[in-house]
Design a protein around this nucleic acid. Structure first.
Lengths: 110, 110
DNA sequence: CTGCATACCTAGATTGTCAAGGGGAAAGTG
DNA sequence: CACTTTCCCCTTGACAATCTAGGTATGCAG
């Protein structure tokens, strides 16, 4: 994930992917594009980060994969949220909000 | 930095320290306490993260160190923002806001 | 049939953090 | 006085997530 200062916000990729998949099954390449688009090109998910991340999430049972065909008629691996993934999404959303609030508190300091 | 899910938000420590030091010179131990307090105990800066980070920031010229005495009459290394550090603070604040906005966009997706 | 975009994948290096240690000195406690 | 706690500094080794930089294969447009 790149954002002018590349290393920023390590740990949010899971959340972003979970949230993206919450809209429905999608293949990896599309997930990355979607995140980039919806973030106004601020968040760029590198493929070298994306695929290992998807693999980890599948291992953990948060997402399930199935081979299919993309809109462009290419072979593509479609991922969808599992029940456990939905739970994880809720959890990570809550953590993000908590941490975001905390950081805001520190940054607010006058 | 710990926050129930420990790895979250790697990359924000610099910003938090810069911001904390913006209030005036402070020694390392106090910086960590301050961040924890102001974040309502959500952000806990481990010493094993803190000191290497301070070292890196000093290397980069963002902060300057000077030995002194703490309120408790103990030897302590006081850090203060340099001009370059102030610039860096502005920059990182802007990046944080940009990225935060971007993530919010993705998370807003209905 | 060449070139490009799509779609997947991986190896290696880098980086930031954490866990877990250690040391010294002031202040508080019995 | 001895003893413990708290403060304040630091380092080493491991780990985990990401990036860089490669690679493969296929459909489609020209």
């Amino acid at each position: 994930m790149t954002a002018t200062k590349a290393e920023l916000l390590q740990g949010t990729l899971d959340l972003l992917i979970l949230k993206t998949l919450n809209a429905g099954p999608m293949h990896g390449y599309a997930i990355a594009q979607r995140i980039q688009q919806r973030s106004d090109d601020v968040l760029v998910v590198e493929e070298g980060s994306l695929y290992p991340c998807l693999y980890r999430m599948e291992e953990k049972g948060w997402i399930a994969a199935e081979w299919g065909k993309s809109d462009n008629n290419r072979r593509a691996k479609y991922y969808s949220l599992t029940r456990s993934g939905r739970k994880q999404l809720e959890e990570e959303t809550a953590i993000w909000e908590r941490v975001h609030r905390a950081i805001t508190l520190v940054l607010q300091t006058v």
